[in-house]
């Protein structure tokens, strides 16, 4: 332990002035980034008089569990049990992570490594879609989902998520870096195209894949749009949507703010967990990739 501390300290010594300033700046910045998370955690435990105090405080002074009881009380009153919403969300998010990464990778691989005629056009089109705000595509999305007849199904939740241009972009950039010789070596070793993709390309791109998994999880876990637009039955709607109904309907109502604070925390925690788990992978693979 002391040895490690000593090594840390010596590394600090090895830095020049500019690096030290940079380090300080980074620390300040990351503390600043951390504030909303601190706020969410503290908010859930604030008694009512603290929830509405002005100016708002980051840290709770007298933590209570009253907000949690309130949420339990509210959910007990709803027609569909909360676990159903939770199941929907877990199911959808899990599938979304798999499908989005699979779709993005399958799309990026030929763009990066197969240079078929017109690949530039396809890639440009995908980049172009990055520029559209989500609201712009709400109506076309609705049309697609309704024309396909997948309203009110899980697939209706998933399909709009699956086209993730940022995922394709990120993976393509990453795959561009893979030396062709690596793929050629695998082909000579007897791998077919799919084996090359699955056994070589994907593992080498693990950091990018993990990043996309995080993005995919976040966009599906927090997604309320598909529940609001494409789902008729209450049983098909997502947890995020359910929590938003708790709070939105009561936006200017003092009564439910405690429950809303807890809901925000519950909605946030899985994001944090997924991020922490996958982020470790991102760093580990970056360090061991050994690509020159």
């Amino acid at each position: 332990m002391r040895l490690r501390l000593w090594r840390r300290a010596s590394r600090l010594h090895a830095m020049d002035g500019f690096q030290k300033v940079l380090l300080l700046l980074m620390i300040v910045l990351s503390v600043f980034m951390l504030l909303p998370i601190v706020y969410i955690f503290n908010h859930a435990f604030k008694p009512y008089h603290e929830l509405f105090v002005y100016p708002p405080t980051f840290f709770v002074k007298e933590p209570v569990l009253q907000n949690w009881n309130e949420l339990v009380a509210v959910t007990a009153r709803s027609t569909v049990p909360m676990v159903r919403y939770l199941f929907n969300s877990v199911f959808i998010s899990g599938l979304a992570v798999l499908l989005v990464t699979a779709a993005s990778a399958l799309c990026a691989y030929p763009l990066a490594k197969h240079r078929f005629p017109g690949y530039k056009l396809v890639f440009a089109a995908i980049i172009l879609t990055l520029m559209f705000a989500p609201e712009v595509v709400q109506i076309p999305r609705y049309l697609v989902v309704s024309q396909l007849g997948i309203m009110n199904t899980y697939f209706g939740h998933l399909l709009p998520l699956m086209a993730m241009p940022i995922g394709v972009f990120l993976l393509k950039q990453f795959m561009d870096q893979i030396p062709n010789a690596l793929l050629e070596a695998a082909r000579i070793d007897g791998a077919n195209e799919f084996t090359v993709f699955l056994r070589i390309v994907i593992p080498v791109c693990k950091p990018a894949v993990a990043t996309i998994a995080i993005l995919a999880f976040q966009s599906s876990w927090g997604n309320t749009e598909s529940s609001a637009l494409f789902m008729m039955d209450e049983e098909m709607k997502s947890f995020a949507f359910y929590l938003s109904t708790l709070t939105n309907n009561l936006a200017n109502n003092v009564a439910m703010q405690g429950a809303a604070a807890v809901a925000a925390l519950i909605l946030f925690v899985p994001n944090l967990i997924v991020f922490v788990i996958l982020q470790g992978k991102v760093i580990a693979t970056m360090a061991h990739s050994g690509i020159k």
């Binding site: 030396p179 010789a181 690596l182 050629e184 070596a185 695998a186 056994r199 070589i200 593992p203 080498v204 693990k206 061991h288 990739s289 050994g290 690509i291 020159k292």
Partner: peptide, 10 residues
């Protein structure tokens, strides 16, 4: 190959 082309993940 010149640059070895070893599979870095294995």
């Amino acid at each position: 190959f010149q640059n070895y082309a070893l599979y870095p993940n294995m």
